Amino acid sequence: MTETTTLPDIVSQDEWQIARDALLAEEKELTRAADAVAAQRRRLPMVRFDAGYEFEGPQGRVSLLDLFEGRRQLIVYHFMLAPGQEAGCPGCSFLVDNIGHLAHLHARDTTLSVVAPATLPEIERYKERMGWTVPWVSTRDGFNADCGIDGGFGVSVFLRDGDDVFRTYFTTARGGDQLVGTLRYLDLTPLGRQEAWEESSRGTDGPGHWWKRHDEY
């Protein structure tokens, strides 16, 4: 952020309330629009997916079906950590830092797992550095490629019906923003994310360019 950042106007309490009420109307409209998109997302058709992909986890070899841990839904975060890399992608690390307590997902019959093509020892070393306990497995049998991941990141959602697995959703790029609580908090503030795309006076950072691993700030 530069020192020339334009600050909000200073107004009276009454003027502020009028402006706040006007914005609230727009926020409610946005909420309703987001709810409508979420409903469309739930109605997306699904595609049958091979349940036998193999991963390596702390307990040994597991299948895609095993990753559900008996629950009906599975969210997979495709993390950018390749074999031979000592540290994961800063953006992916930022996102994983923002994963909440998994008990809340489990309460709605949903499991979350992180996958990466790095070896399990490499994953475990990076998890220890970051202080993470999120479930994370190694994949190197084409799973990422079959999910449309070519060296990048993404989020895949699966539904289990008995032993049959279906893929229902995928997003990447700024679609991952919706999973990062830190960004939601910054969006409430007058200075925002302090990225150039917001307003020209906010800085020169592109989306995500300021993100670092939490032990590197």
Score class of each variant (00 low, 15 high):
Met1Gln: 13
Val11Asn: 05
Gln13Ile: 11
Asp14Pro: 06
Glu15Arg: 03
Trp16Thr: 04
Ala22Asn: 07
Glu26Trp: 02
Glu27Arg: 10
Thr31Pro: 13
Asp35Arg: 15
Ala36Glu: 08
Ala38Met: 11
Val47Met: 04
Arg48Asp: 08
Ala51Gly: 09
Ala51Lys: 15
Tyr53Thr: 02
Tyr53Pro: 04
Tyr53Trp: 09
Phe55Tyr: 03
Phe55Ile: 01
Arg61Gly: 02
Val62Cys: 03
Leu65His: 06
Glu69Thr: 01
Val76Ser: 11
His78Gln: 04
Leu81Val: 06
Ala82Cys: 11
Ala82Asn: 15
Ala82Ser: 14
Gly84Met: 08
Pro90Gln: 09
Gly91Asn: 13
Phe94Lys: 12
Leu95Tyr: 07
Asn98Met: 00
Ile99Gln: 00
His101Thr: 04
His101Arg: 08
His106Gln: 07
Arg108Val: 14
Val115Thr: 13
Ala116Tyr: 06
Pro117Gln: 11
Glu124Pro: 14
Lys127Gly: 06
Thr133Gln: 14
Pro135Arg: 14
Pro135Lys: 13
Gly142Met: 01
Asp146His: 03
Cys147Leu: 03
Gly148Trp: 00
Ile149Met: 00
Gly151Asn: 01
Leu159Met: 11
Arg160Tyr: 00
Arg167Met: 01
Thr168Glu: 04
Thr171Met: 04
Gln178Phe: 08
Val180Met: 14
Val180Phe: 10
Arg184Asp: 08
Tyr185Leu: 12
Leu188Glu: 14
Pro190Gln: 02
Leu191Gly: 10
Ser201Asn: 14
Thr204Lys: 15
Trp211Asn: 12
Trp211Val: 07
Arg213Ser: 02
His214Gly: 09
Asp215Glu: 13
